[in-house]
């Protein structure tokens, strides 16, 4: 991404609350929240090659821990950090047994664990958590927007750093061929676990921001697989295993969903399914690769005589 474009986007993102109304800022916050979830999933799947279908568990744990602590009087920064750490600890609990599993078994195992967690939460906790009056009175959108913006920057920055680091090279080698990676000295179990912990912490941070953002909050919803699968869709749409794919995919996804849901209500899910199939088949590199694909197609067309 060209530096000038990056700076322009950063300025726009920071200035958004001053140039647009509350509805747009809310929309922007939701896009940025999805960026964090998407980037965290992208780290483990796109770079590490491990498909975690239980990603929502980290989001949910972050949401639950952060909101509970914050409602109990803990300052939100500390509550958010605690949420991220709790999610990372959960990552350890999930990762230690399941990372020994190859391929599809890891995906199935993580999905199962996440669903178990969701059902436990749904049956043990009250269905909705509403804020007490003093927290409602003190509610401001702006700090929440900047919090999520900061998380989006941190998560994208993390992926960018990993991508150009020794650790990232080791991860990608594991993704391409785990045996080969082991052969050249990469401790694949440790690498995958580290990627899982960072992925979990970032998703937990996103969940914490979500818990902090919503006035009324349904704990069960934070564990819903929709958080995982929306992230998967966004990452593939934008470009899996790239730094800028997830943000582009997130913006595209949220935009398209807002545009379609109003007109098609439930049918918009069908459109998304179709878009997903088309992207995976025709544009496997995602939207970030669109320019490259167009260039290649143009280059291969016969020139007029």
């Amino acid at each position: 991404m060209r530096p000038a474009l990056l700076v322009a986007l950063a300025v726009l993102a920071c200035a958004l609350p001053w140039v647009a109304g509350e509805a747009v800022v809310n929309w922007g916050l939701l896009v940025l929240l999805q960026v964090v979830v998407a980037q965290s999933w992208n780290l483990l799947a796109g770079y590490g090659g491990q498909v975690n279908l239980g990603h929502a568990a980290f989001f949910g744990i972050g949401a639950l821990v952060t909101r509970s602590l914050w409602m109990g009087g803990v300052p939100v920064a500390a509550a958010l950090a605690a949420g991220a750490v709790a999610a990372a600890v959960a990552g350890l609990g999930i990762g230690l047994p399941s990372l020994r599993l190859r391929g599809p078994y890891f995906a199935i195992g993580t999905l199962a664990m996440s669903e178990i967690l969701r059902i436990v939460v749904a049956t043990t906790l009250p269905e909705v958590s509403a804020l007490p009056a003093d927290l409602i009175a003190g509610y401001r959108l702006l700090p929440r927007y900047y919090l999520v913006l900061a998380l989006a920057a941190v998560s994208t920055g993390t992926v960018w750093l990993v991508a150009r680091s020794r650790f990232g090279m080791g991860l990608v080698a594991i993704r391409e061929d785990e045996w080969v990676a082991e052969t050249v000295g990469v401790d694949s179990y440790r690498h995958k676990l580290a990627a899982l912990l960072v992925s979990a912490a970032l998703a937990g941070g996103a969940g914490g921001a979500f818990g902090y953002y919503h006035l009324s909050f349904y704990p069960q919803f934070a564990f819903s697989p929709v958080w995982t699968f929306d992230a998967v869709l966004m990452v593939f749409l934008g470009g899996i295993g790239t730094v800028w794919g997830p943000p582009i995919g997130a913006a595209f996804f949220v935009l398209l969903r807002e545009a379609l849901a109003l007109r098609l209500t439930e049918l918009h899910v069908l459109v998304f399914g179709a878009v997903f199939v088309v992207v995976v088949l025709a544009l496997p590199g995602g939207l970030v690769d669109l320019l490259g694909v167009l260039r290649r197609v143009r280059g291969s067309r016969p020139q007029p005589a």
Binding site: R166, M169, G170, A173, A181, V184, G185, V186
Partner: peptide, 8 residues
């Protein structure tokens, strides 16, 4: 390069 980053 991966080999150069890990190994002996």
């Amino acid at each position: 390069a991966v080999g150069r980053l890990y190994g002996t």
